[in-house]
Design a protein around this nucleic acid. Structure first.
Lengths: 160, 160
DNA sequence: TGTGGTTACTTGACATATCAACTAAACTGC
DNA sequence: GCAGTTTAGTTGATATGTCAAGTAACCACA
């Protein structure tokens, strides 16, 4: 019996399908997250650190710290510490902007890029492995439903 | 443009549908989590503290600390601190078991139960509100797909 | 030009997650 | 009945999340 089924039984059922869907979502995300966390740990970084590096590589240019924060679910003060640790590992570099001295830009360094390179294949492998038992059509349906789910989310108010 | 669509564009597309599905899952779960976190904070507890309280209420009896841990995604050492804080707030009580003095059981107290009671309606309201735009049929489909997703998850090896 | 508001971070306090290592109690085998 | 193992839980170090408050630089306007 799965953990979730166990809880359902224990809680004498959900009060609504909505609640069941949300709990399921949370559980699934947690389990998937665990798998990725393990992979990243083997390479000496955490999921969040990976996210930052990937955003920087994707951008193709140094980004201001707040820009990085905007592209993550993470709150601003957390970014500061995240960048601190990446810097300490020699994966990125902080630079005070000349044009606006309030702005601090972050540049991904060679060591960071090569770490990401090492992870590219394992990431794809893991993603596929986690979902080998799902058909392409099911995955597309899932994506569509998840996107719809996010539509009315109060914490998803887009910035102007 | 949503944050996710932005990233897709930035990353020049996903390498696979699997990866896209997993990233979507993570994002959606994060956003939903934020909504719940806000609600819980208004009542002075965190999501994890709520989970513990709910497990205790669901069980209907005091549970050993490891039992609580088993029913959460949380790792054992984290439970210790979690219970510490709940105890400090007077919501639960620790008791050393007589039968086996290694075991520490946790009992939910009146204050904990009444806090949960206060949250019951708001929780249902929020769950429904987050998903008002989804049809019952879509929610059921989502649940089914998420359950299937978890089936081959390496971190979901059931305990014997 | 100088004063007040905004912006971009940073810092500090605290909750939580992780792993590794530790303690204490119970069990197991000889 | 004692040594070795297992089990239950705690502790400590580090990473990250939260909010509130602080700092430094820029901007707008009298």
């Amino acid at each position: 019996m799965s953990q979730l089924q166990f809880e359902i039984k224990q809680n004498k059922g959900f009060t609504s399908t909505a609640e069941e869907a949300l709990l399921n979502l949370q559980r699934t995300a947690d389990h998937i997250q665990i798998a990725y966390t393990r992979l990243f740990r083997e390479h000496g970084i955490t999921s969040q650190q990976y996210n930052v590096l990937r955003i920087l590589r994707g951008a193709g240019e140094p980004l201001p710290i707040l820009e990085v924060g905007d592209r993550m679910v993470t709150v601003v003060p957390a970014i500061t510490g995240l960048i601190d640790r990446l810097e300490k590992q020699g994966l990125v570099r902080r630079t005070r902007s000349e044009a606006d001295r309030r702005v601090v830009t972050v540049t991904i360094l060679g060591k960071g890029l090569s770490l990401l390179g090492d992870l590219d294949k394992p990431i794809v492998t893991l993603s596929k492995q986690l979902l080998t038992h799902m058909e392409e059509k099911e995955l597309k349906k899932t994506i569509q439903l998840l996107e719809k789910m996010r539509q009315h989310c109060p914490s998803c108010q887009e910035k102007p």
